[in-house]
Simulated scan of single mutants.
Amino acid sequence: MKTTPRFDAAISKLYNAFYNNTLNPDCCKQCAVGNILDNTDSWKHLADNHGALQLNYIGNVHQTLGRKFNGYSPIELLKIERVFLKACGYQLPLHYKNRKPENPTDTNVLFNGLSDVIELLCKLDNISNVMDYKGLFKHKLKESDSICIK
Rank of each mutant, 00 (worst) to 15 (best):
M1N: 05
M1W: 03
K2T: 12
T4K: 14
P5L: 13
R6N: 14
K13C: 10
Y15I: 07
Y15K: 08
A17F: 08
F18K: 03
Y19S: 04
N21P: 03
N21W: 08
N21M: 03
T22K: 13
N24F: 01
N24E: 00
K29S: 06
K29D: 02
C31Q: 00
A32Q: 08
A32N: 08
A32L: 04
G34A: 03
G34L: 05
N35W: 09
I36D: 04
L37I: 13
L37G: 02
T40A: 06
T40M: 03
T40Y: 02
D41V: 07
D41R: 12
S42Y: 15
H45R: 12
L46W: 03
L46H: 04
A47Y: 05
N49G: 04
N49L: 15
H50W: 15
G51T: 12
L55T: 02
N56E: 04
N56A: 07
Y57F: 12
V61A: 11
Q63L: 03
Q63F: 06
Q63H: 12
T64I: 02
L65K: 04
G66Q: 02
G66M: 06
R67K: 10
R67N: 04
K68I: 13
F69G: 02
N70R: 12
N70A: 15
P74V: 13
L78V: 08
K79V: 01
K79L: 12
E81A: 05
E81Y: 08
F84V: 04
L85H: 08
L85Q: 11
C88T: 12
C88P: 04
C88I: 00
C88R: 07
Y90W: 13
Q91S: 14
Q91T: 11
L92D: 08
L92P: 09
P93L: 06
Y96G: 00
Y96N: 13
K97M: 05
K97Q: 11
R99Y: 07
R99M: 08
R99A: 13
K100E: 06
K100V: 07
K100G: 01
P101L: 10
E102Y: 04
N103K: 06
P104G: 00
T107K: 12
T107E: 02
T107V: 09
N108F: 08
V109N: 01
L110Q: 01
F111P: 00
S115E: 04
D116N: 11
V117Y: 01
I118Q: 03
L120W: 11
L121M: 09
C122W: 06
L124R: 03
N126L: 08
N126F: 11
I127V: 15
S128V: 14
N129R: 01
N129S: 09
V130A: 14
M131L: 05
D132Y: 09
D132S: 12
D132Q: 06
Y133I: 03
K134F: 02
F137K: 06
H139Y: 11
K142H: 09
E143L: 15
S144K: 10
I147N: 00
